[in-house]
């Protein structure tokens, strides 16, 4: 009987900013192309649906050793994941991720941002990190850190208007990304400062 194909090893999750990837080491068979298939099992399937597994069609019989599972990990519960190898008629056992994966463990990075002064207006450009993200923006007049103001930005269309600035004054801004679905935030971005148009007659 043909030797059983070895199951994929080193199965792990790479999860950053709510994008989740399952990765594994290749099964090496000299001169052959091994294919892989991935399945997932949510807590619902484990507890209420006879521990059933659900195939991910985009990762069925693929040659890559990574699978984007983001769309299927769409609830904040514990998921099981497994992958097996196929070579012609030969098939391996399932290799299963050690431990569960819950999306609330994703690593969150601060947003890429650009602060703009346009006349007396303080503006902010933010990176679009996906539909799950909002941004908590803190801004203050330099030297008046205790009078820091906050704005939550949910729509990242383009240049977001934060506030108006006093003529000639310098304003600083920092932001963190926030994901409501898992109730977690990233660390703050680097602070950026800009200066308002200098015409002080505005204040007479």
């Amino acid at each position: 009987e043909e030797a059983l194909l070895p199951a994929p090893q080193n199965i792990s999750i790479l999860s950053t900013n709510m994008k989740h990837f399952l990765t594994w080491s290749p099964v090496i068979i000299q001169g052959e192309t091994v294919r892989y298939s991935v399945e997932f099992q949510g807590e619902y399937e484990r507890v209420y649906a006879n521990e059933s597994w659900i195939p991910i069609s985009e990762c069925s019989l693929i040659t890559a050793t990574a699978c984007n599972i983001t769309e299927d990990i769409s609830a904040t519960v514990a998921y099981n994941l497994r992958v097996r190898a196929d070579l012609g008629a030969r098939r391996s056992e399932w290799g299963t991720l050690k431990g569960f994966f819950n999306r609330n463990t994703t690593s969150l990075t601060p947003p890429v941002m650009k602060v703009i002064a346009d006349g007396y207006h303080l503006l902010l450009e933010l990176e679009d990190m996906g539909p799950a993200f909002q941004f908590r923006v803190l801004y203050w007049k330099k030297g008046q850190e205790r009078r820091m103001q906050q704005k939550v930005v949910k729509e990242v269309s383009s240049v977001v208007h934060l506030d108006t600035m006093e003529a000639g004054a310098e304003y600083c801004v920092k932001a963190q990304s926030y994901v409501e679905d898992i109730n977690r935030s990233s660390s703050f971005s680097q602070t950026q400062c800009v200066r308002a148009q200098g015409d002080t007659s505005m204040w007479l």
Binding site: Y44, E45, Y48, E71
Partner: peptide, 11 residues
Amino acid sequence: RKISSIANSFL
């Protein structure tokens, strides 16, 4: 897959 997503969200 979509039913699984909804079911796990309901859970």
